[in-house]
Design a protein around this nucleic acid. Structure first.
Lengths: 126, 126
DNA sequence: TTATTATATGACATTTTTATCATATGATAA
DNA sequence: TTATCATATGATAAAAATGTCATATAATAA
């Protein structure tokens, strides 16, 4: 039973919210849906070069959290970004832009890459 | 060389930004500094019941990202929340509150707990 | 000076998250 | 019906994040 009325969110919800958006692939999906409009999974696959099953798993997360909406079009599923998320993405740009270089230099979040690892998972798949 | 002028942030910065705040302990530190005002590490330790070295590691992350500021007071270090973060925390409350139950039911983010694990790390330490 | 208090750091084990593979489901076309 | 296309799911290996311990540093007190 899921209720829709407003509640002051608890810590668990807030943490989940940020964890959902903190994933770079999920974030790229949101940005793409924001900039290019609604599209189906295989279009996202082509644009983002992310494995189909990987995409589906991440879309499920975004859908569960209501960051995206889904419509059925025959055998395709068309995903679109939730209006709130669109606004949020814009509103944080200024802050992150200003402090970008500090954030990037955080040695708690960043780990040096070794030949076999890409701790941030950001460069590959691009 | 860290520059302060505004840039449109890249994906890496955005991902780091959210990963910094997605950690429940770091988020609780921010909330505490927001609600109770500036305080030193040992005060946070008492209030939040987080290990001293764990706190220091997480404070370093928050400081690196400029989510908090630090002042010296004798041998104590006094941390305070950055004004932007204060606003952000409030602005997302409505959205998360509305969709809280959806977010909580996301089975990509949530993993069932077993006797030896607390995957979310949320209940313990309270 | 040495002792004490407060905080920070490095190493690394533990826990959690992510990526990938094999397979399932569901819609439509042949 | 069977074949094909589009997407979803479950299991689990690989990678990354977190927690903890031992120890370092830095300020002040004795």
């Amino acid at each position: 039973m899921i209720k829709m009325s407003y509640n002051k969110p608890d810590e668990k919800s807030i943490s989940l919210f940020f964890r959902a958006i903190a994933n770079i692939k999920r974030f790229r999906i949101l940005v793409t849906l924001n900039e290019k409009g609604p599209m189906c999974v295989s279009q996202l696959e082509d644009l983002l070069d992310i494995e189909q099953s990987d995409l589906s798993h991440n879309l499920k997360c975004l859908l569960n959290c209501k960051f995206v909406n889904r419509e059925y079009r025959g055998k395709e599923k068309v995903y679109s970004i939730n209006d709130y998320m669109r606004g949020l993405i814009n509103s944080i740009n200024n802050h992150i832009g200003t402090y970008e270089n500090y954030i990037k230099s955080c040695d708690i979040l960043n780990v040096k890459e070794t030949k076999n690892s890409n701790k941030l998972g950001i460069i590959k798949n691009r």
